[in-house]
Design a protein around this nucleic acid. Structure first.
Lengths: 147, 147
DNA sequence: TATTGTTATACTCTATAACTATA
DNA sequence: TATAGTTATAGAGTATAACAATA
């Protein structure tokens, strides 16, 4: 990338995205009316949905939250009936986290809501444009979070 | 956009970007070695730079942080010599926040660093891909943050 | 001895409430 | 009476440290 204005535009957009008001607004919308999940436990629930069955330690590394916080939020989700704990047959120290059917349903609802937002933002793009955008965004986030 | 996997990828990337560890990591890098500003006060300093001179109440609305937190972080920045308070000539109740020359310098340094990160992340992209990405990201963020 | 899960503790961020000065 | 700035207080998130069980 060469243009400085392009960088400046990306910088401004990321700044807005990282603003607290944007984050809470987005998360609040996604979990509105859903019982047992909130803006705090959402990353944990979403991570379990993606990598299940997974141990708390591994999940913590995947989602970038401390493992003590991960296990506490997982406990909350378990109390809400969205997450299940099963012993790891390969390691008696470990416990594997999984979604319950209720958890499955809520995750699907949240994803549908976000997809709705994404579709609103990309409704008139060519099909392959969204795919290219996804790839670019992944690479950018990967770079920004590794520095 | 139609593909569900594309949406899922964007969702995961945004989730990672909004995560606290990513944000603090990014902010920490931007303010490393700069005296008087940290990941918490950065949005306030950046907001003052953009909208100065501005009252604490108005700034709070712009950056999405409560006005009580805004005034406290502004006080920190003032103690560090980066921000100045001047009375509002139009309203004796109000106080306007402005950058000092030292604050100006630090803001410029931080922006250069972020732009540097972005250019490093997109160095090997084709020129038009970065531009398309910037446009797409702007529209997405705009959609996500709209009330 | 190292690792997993968990709990206890302390620290920081942030919003709600309350107070003072001014419109 | 309403609003701006500020301070006090309380609630929530998160990391560090410590502990028991198991590798």
């Amino acid at each position: 990338m060469s243009s400085r204005t392009t960088s400046a535009r990306i910088e401004a957009a990321i700044g807005q995205l990282l603003r607290r008001s944007t984050r809470t607004h987005l998360y609040d919308n996604m979990v509105a009316g859903l019982d047992g999940v909130d803006a705090t436990t959402y990353p944990v629930l979403s991570g379990i949905a993606r990598w299940q069955p997974i141990s708390a330690t591994n999940l913590a590394q995947e989602i970038g939250i401390d493992r003590t916080a991960t296990t506490r939020y997982a406990s909350r989700l378990q109390q809400a009936g969205l997450v299940d704990r099963v012993p790891d047959p390969a390691d008696a120290r470990a416990t594997l986290l999984r979604l319950t059917p209720a958890g499955d349903q809520i995750v699907e609802t949240m994803r549908d809501r976000l997809v709705g937002h994404l579709e609103a933002a990309t409704a008139d793009w060519p099909d392959d444009e969204a795919q290219r955008f996804a790839v670019s965004l992944e690479r950018l986030v990967d770079t920004l979070s590794r520095r």
